[in-house]
Design a protein around this nucleic acid. Sequence first.
DNA 1: CGAGGTATTGACGGCTCTCAAGTCTGGTGG
DNA 2: CCACCAGACTTGAGAGCCGTCAATACCTCG
Lengths: 235, 235
Amino acid sequence: MAMDGLRPEREELFERNGFRGHIGGQTGVLARWGLGVPMKFGADVEICGEGEPVDYVYEVVHGAVRTLKILPDGRRQIGGFYFAGDIFGLEDGDLHCLSAEAVADSTIRVMRRRVLIGLAGGDRDLAQQLLVMATREIARVHGHALMLIQNAQERLSSFLVQMGERIAIRDLIVLPMSRQDIADHLGVTIETVSRTFTILESASAIKLPNARTVLLRDRAALRSKPPRPGAAARR
Amino acid sequence: MAMDGLRPEREELFERNGFRGHIGGQTGVLARWGLGVPMKFGADVEICGEGEPVDYVYEVVHGAVRTLKILPDGRRQIGGFYFAGDIFGLEDGDLHCLSAEAVADSTIRVMRRRVLIGLAGGDRDLAQQLLVMATREIARVHGHALMLIQNAQERLSSFLVQMGERIAIRDLIVLPMSRQDIADHLGVTIETVSRTFTILESASAIKLPNARTVLLRDRAALRSKPPRPGAAARR
DNA sequence: CGAGGTATTGACGGCTCTCAAGTCTGGTGG
DNA sequence: CCACCAGACTTGAGAGCCGTCAATACCTCG
């Protein structure tokens, strides 16, 4: 992936646009505090496993990570994707409910949770930052749940809009994840994802130079509800 | 149906209205620290509204609360139900993404978020408790998302198992919320909820003395997957 | 070029939504 | 006491979206 080559460009773009998100390797909480050890993970390598002790907290320096859970029947739920500056692994209790894997080759800052919590105890600012990260994660997961009650077209549209805000260069999204990853995140099948991509392209909302590249042509159309024939507002 | 006060009214209430008298249930974090002011809310009264400033944090003393979001097309998503000891209103940013309403007559501890954060800055223990509450909420919302990718029977079963763990007396659940509330939480229609209740009762997994009372007869059956004909494990 | 994984497209069936009618319950008033 | 009503809940029939299975196209890499 040519993601590394694109990064400086994106960084400039974000600054110029006043983008509030995270970019580069210096913007994360851990990075700013100089905490944690950067480590490299190859594509599809597991970073932490479901059921393992929650010993570390992670921050993406660059690359992309997915958190996931395998259901007893084999289905796979992807809880979220994390990009540069995002923190993951914030979990309650002693054991991970979700495992995490690198979607593409990635660098991840790894830090002992106990140490981080300890430092936060003596640093008001860091403690508050941690709480902010946690509440932000709550909002993100809520958004995920909200998406899951919509239909396939709405789900994929929301996903693309979100990716547009998080990892797009202007209107161009280079997806690090596969169709299967997207499907498992949106709670639909890979076939439905594929069909819906085609529908959105036919509607001129997006353009697909290739399977992993999406050009957003009409964000407004993606944000608006697709024609839902009989889907009357209930109540 | 108490009237829902205007926002300024509510704020004034929060500011100077103190609830006098003995309060049962000292189970929550705020209660243990003696923080916040207990207030009463009638059934269906709004506690905080979507789009309002995030000024307070709430803890249920007794009763039940739902957090919800109204979609542009009128659909309603219930993010979660909160019972005695549960904290809600932990949100990121300045504005609430979710509103909260009392499901039944309830008593809620209300506390200024800024004050709580401030106190946590000087109290290691409280700060850690707050972070635990936040990560626990993350796990809960993840569980909600996980439920939303399953079929109707699995969704209702999970919901009942969860209620069984949170508000049941032995195997008896007295539901404070309506079928519509359940439907909007599970992301299905009220008819599907109703039909699925009937199916579970026919299967002897539960018994329904009346619509708001559920007797769990076979938790194992509720936890196990229902017959999903062609639902092969993918991948 | 061929191989293998990934993605798209097609046909069909089932689960759930929609629309509609029926039942139950609690409250009100004659 | 009972008729009546309003609201919540249940049940039924038909339609549509999406899952399943299957075949085909595309893309990357040896």
